[in-house]
Design a protein around this nucleic acid. Structure first.
Lengths: 166, 166
DNA sequence: TTCATTTATCTTGACATCAAGATTACCTCC
DNA sequence: GGAGGTAATCTTGATGTCAAGATAAATGAA
């Protein structure tokens, strides 16, 4: 198989630091680099539907929640791995664009409900289909069984993080 | 095996959008989420050595280059996947901290050489060892053969990006 | 030689993010 | 029914990043 950037990177490290075992990078550097490439691909895929990646993340969380497509900022925080200040800003901008609406909870007046608008639902549904089409293309190099094994191996690495929430 | 966040996420999508095949997410969402967790782990590991992740990335590229630990901003761009404006800012800050020095090339006066200082070399060498110790811990759940397979599968996904430079 | 093109780097302006703290409202225990 | 503690959200200030364009120098064709 052809060499990728990480092969060259670890080879260089082995030359410069032969005293170290850099083999962990062969897995984890590829994860990081692949994620950066995926971010760019996602950005391009969403741009066709007029959404930024961070906009999709919020809208998708609401969409996944099912009818009536409504969650609190606090729940959205947990699903998107951002801070509260960031979520405030995101909801502000999504509201300004008419993709979601925000209203105060009547029972707990500290709380807020963020709800997908009809426009938001249409946007996120279209963007999701574009995303999946793009992702299928990126995975074309792997067979079904390989994808399954890859997913399983990745799950093993992710699980410790999901268990102990940061 | 226990469920992770991505299992819950795809299950929710299948409930809301039973018409779509969301299986690509089982691989790619895990890559993205794992990368976010790795970023945080890297940040913590580097903090012990007084470096930010972006600082390490630049210093490590110079360190890997070998004696005299000197590269141009343009080459650093390619290795770190950032834009030229970002690299200018990074080199500015690293210079201010005394981790690298910058001087104009004598032959091509458009060009600049960024060189690791002795302090920069010591910092990046120490941080690298901390990073690897941390990465070994994160990979503890996988055996040697599993790591190799995982690395191979990831290489297959990364290669198309490395070939066609964005 | 000279001018247009290309290359290498830097500058600018906008923006998303975070950490820390402020604000407002609920809740529990005396 | 207060008072202190907790919870949910928002505000502020600093920072890192990008996209697009500016600057400056090398290159090549006529």
């Amino acid at each position: 198989m052809a060499q990728d950037e990480v092969d060259r990177l670890t080879e260089a490290w082995r030359h410069e630091r032969p005293d170290l075992d850099v083999s962990p990078m062969e897995v984890l550097s590829r994860v990081s680099r692949l994620a950066r490439h995926l971010d760019r691909a996602r950005r391009a895929a969403f741009a066709e539907h007029g959404l930024e990646p961070w906009e999709f993340d919020v809208l998708a969380a609401l969409r996944r929640a099912g009818e009536p497509y409504e969650l609190s900022p606090g729940v959205l925080l947990g699903q998107t791995l951002v801070t509260s200040g960031t979520m405030t800003a995101r909801v502000d901008k999504l509201t300004a664009r008419g993709l979601v609406s925000r209203r105060r909870d009547e029972d707990d007046r500290r709380a807020v409900r963020v709800r997908l608008t009809e426009f938001g639902k249409k946007s996120v549904d279209a963007a999701l289909e574009g995303l999946l089409a793009n992702e299928r293309r990126l995975l074309a190099g792997l067979g079904a069984e390989e994808r399954r094994r890859l997913a399983d191996l990745l799950r093993t690495l992710v699980l410790p993080f999901d268990d102990a929430p940061s």
